[in-house]
């Protein structure tokens, strides 16, 4: 199973959960739009998943028969949607940094989290030099302090 199949499967799972959840509520609250929409999305997602898996199987069979001929003609899945490589390690690292940002913003202050994130992320993930990263972190931190801390009452 490829990533695009997992994405479709997740949409199907979410719509199935909402459809099942609709039974918990009475009246129009659920047995109106939520029931109808989640039901339609579930059917569409499952149909897409089945069609996609069958197209992949046919594609593999064609490639096995003609290794040099490339993708089969008449394939329903457009080329741009096929199996894009996902940099899982990069994605996980970015989200680890963002999780750190949230933790510091929540338990310390966003005024510390913003420059710390920009500096550390710039140096460690983006492999930028220390000085430009420090300048960027300081300038954005200052702008954020002025706008959000000095002006906005909600912060």
């Amino acid at each position: 199973m490829k990533v695009r199949h997992v994405v479709t499967l997740l949409v199907a799972a979410l719509s199935a959960a909402m459809l099942a959840g609709a039974f918990e509520y009475a009246g129009t609250a659920a047995f109106g739009f939520p029931f109808a929409v989640s039901g339609i999305v579930l059917v569409m997602a499952l149909a897409l998943l089945v069609a996609d898996l069958r197209a992949d199987r046919a594609d593999r069979a064609d490639r096995a028969a003609e290794p040099a001929s490339g993708a089969a003609s008449g394939d329903p899945v457009p080329e741009q949607e096929r199996d894009r490589p996902v940099d899982w390690a990069g994605l996980a690292t970015i989200y680890a940094f963002l999780a750190g940002f949230l933790v510091v913003a929540h338990f310390v202050s966003y005024l510390v989290a913003v420059p710390a994130f920009l500096f550390l992320f710039g140096v460690l993930f983006c492999k930028e030099r220390w000085v430009p990263s420090a300048v960027l972190a300081a300038s954005v931190g200052l702008a954020v302090f002025v706008i959000f801390d000095q002006f906005l009452p909600s912060f």
């Binding site: 719509s15 909402m18 009246g27 609250a29 739009f33 929409v37 999305v41």
Partner: peptide, 20 residues
């Protein structure tokens, strides 16, 4: 459809029942 489903989260506009 997914966007609509997300829009249905929260209080129902008619009965006020909180969903999902």
């Amino acid at each position: 459809g997914l966007g609509l489903m997300l829009a249905f989260v929260g209080a129902d506009p008619i009965e006020g029942l909180v969903r999902y």
